[in-house]
């Protein structure tokens, strides 16, 4: 940016109208299927069909009374956060190795790390279950689900971070080494900040993958279900559909609010720094 201060400030000023419209269109595409959830969650009909009948909040009341579902939600959040963080750390190390060093048998390792993606999930689920139960004899719990989710999220983290680290300027890292920083300092002060957008993207994607994963969680869950399992169980009963729509709407609502608030706080802080 410092190289081109003029054009940067000009570009910074305003998004052209046409681009704003395109962005709006994308938001519509991304959110299209989920904006219907709040609509039907306030409709007094257990079937999600048009025309709408009558406004009601009873599905939300039903939701607040359903502790089991909220527990399942919490379990999923915990697992998804843990596996996103672990997978991103492991994936980062792999990406660093693959992009910075001459890795022996690179393709072999690459294949191994992609393996969790290629194996059909039902096979993975059944084999991991027997691995945990018959070989290790660990009881099924959220830990077993989390361990499985780390294996399937590692490839996601690895691929994103390789794409980020690949072909970005190695000279910065070399320069820092020349300046006498050791490997850790270089990693902490140069590589990590440069990789940060990739790390954030990796955390977000791994979170989604784990949060929404059903088949592995089915095989590896004990008495504490994750949200997808709980929901799939209830799908058998049409009466519980609106309550699930209400839950989906709440997730939508609270996540948007949370993002807005954190971003506002962040902006305030950075303004204060200026």
């Amino acid at each position: 940016m410092s190289a081109t201060p003029m054009s940067a400030t000009v570009r910074r000023s305003r998004l052209p109208l046409i681009l704003s419209l395109i962005l709006a269109f994308y938001v519509l595409v991304l959110y299209g299927p989920v904006v219907l959830l709040p609509v039907f969650s306030f409709n007094d009909n257990i079937y999600a069909v048009f025309p709408l009948t009558q406004f009601t909040t009873k599905w939300y009341q039903e939701l607040t009374g359903n502790q089991a579902m909220l527990f399942a939600l919490w379990a999923s959040i915990k697992i998804a956060m843990a596996s996103a963080i672990i997978a991103t750390i492991l994936g980062f190390l792999v990406a660093k190795a693959m992009t910075r060093y001459r890795v022996p048998a690179k393709n072999f390792f690459y294949g191994i790390f992609m393996l969790p993606l290629i194996l059909p999930t039902i096979i993975k689920g059944a084999s991991l279950l027997s691995f945990f139960r018959q070989y290790l004899d660990v009881p099924l719990s959220l830990w077993t689900i989390g361990a499985a989710h780390v294996t399937v999220t590692i490839p996601f983290a690895m691929l994103i971070l390789i794409a980020r680290l690949e072909s970005f300027d190695r000279s910065l890292e070399e320069a820092s080494a020349d300046l006498g920083m050791n490997a850790w300092e270089t990693a902490w002060r140069i590589t990590l900040p440069l990789a940060m957008p990739g790390i954030i993207a990796s955390l977000l994607l791994c979170f989604i993958v784990s949060f929404d994963e059903f088949m592995l969680a089915f095989f590896l869950s004990g008495s504490q279900p994750t949200l997808p399992i709980y929901m799939f169980g209830l799908l058998r009963f049409p009466e519980s559909m609106p309550m699930m729509l209400a839950l989906g709407s709440c997730i939508l609502f609270f996540s948007i609010i949370a993002v807005t608030i954190t971003e506002m706080l962040r902006l305030k802080r950075s303004e204060a720094l200026l």
Binding site: V34, V49, I200, G248
Partner: peptide
């Protein structure tokens, strides 16, 4: 501006369970 917000906004629809998104697709 708000790049981080945009990134997260992109992922939020996928925090909603697949089963619910599927139900919506059938309605759409």
């Amino acid at each position: 501006r708000y790049k981080a917000v945009w990134l997260i906004l992109v992922t939020i629809p996928f925090w909603i369970s697949y089963f619910l998104r599927v139900a919506s697709w059938k309605v759409i």
